[in-house]
């Protein structure tokens, strides 16, 4: 429960930090466009509102926790945070790293079938078993997707 509390407060602090950053970033453009329509007014209004809401949420969250009489009631404060399976985080991290790699490869050879095949193979390896089925489906579907995508893009462009 303490972890969830720290997470929640960290997220709200991050939102506050974004609000402050927007204020700092827009300080130099507050004189552009005149007092009523200054370029920085609107982002500041949005950031200010977001910051106030984050503070309000923090206060409400803490108030909720303090009023909770039992551990079960306290747990309910976290909006089902405990349902989340952190055990699968490795998949998310791996998928994100793969996507960065994919973008890097794409920069070198756009729409290369080999790139598709490679990435598809790795994506699939997270879920599909047995390996034989994985290999067959990878080659077939990546080839099909490549042809389909290049064909469609080629036609419409």
């Amino acid at each position: 429960m303490r972890h969830a509390l720290i997470q929640e407060l960290l997220v709200l602090t991050a939102i506050l930090a974004i609000s402050v950053l927007v204020f700092l970033q827009t300080s130099s453009i507050m004189d552009a466009g005149g007092s009523q329509v200054a370029s920085g007014t609107f982002p500041r209004l949005a950031a200010g509102t977001m910051g106030v809401l984050a503070i309000l949420r923090m206060l409400m969250f803490v108030a909720k926790l303090r009023t909770a009489k039992s551990p079960a009631e306290k747990a309910r404060t976290f909006d089902g945070m405990y349902d989340w399976n952190w055990g699968n985080m490795h998949r998310i991290v791996a998928a994100t790293v793969l996507m960065v790699l994919y973008i890097f490869l794409f920069r070198l050879v756009p729409f290369a079938p080999l790139t598709f095949t490679f990435i598809f193979l790795v994506f699939l390896s997270f879920g599909v078993r047995p390996w034989k089925r994985l290999l067959i489906s990878t080659v077939l579907s990546s080839g099909f997707l490549t042809i389909l995508f290049v064909y469609i893009v080629g036609i419409v462009r």
Binding site: G33, S39, P43, L53
Partner: peptide
């Protein structure tokens, strides 16, 4: 959550202001 929903829309509004200001041409964020 109501507050989180409102914070999300504020974030969207901030992201929408990125780029050149269409009235003054000033770069923002």
């Amino acid at each position: 959550d109501l507050l989180k929903g409102l914070m999300s829309s504020c974030l969207g509004l901030i992201l929408a202001t990125v780029g050149l200001d269409e009235l003054t041409g000033t770069p923002r964020l």
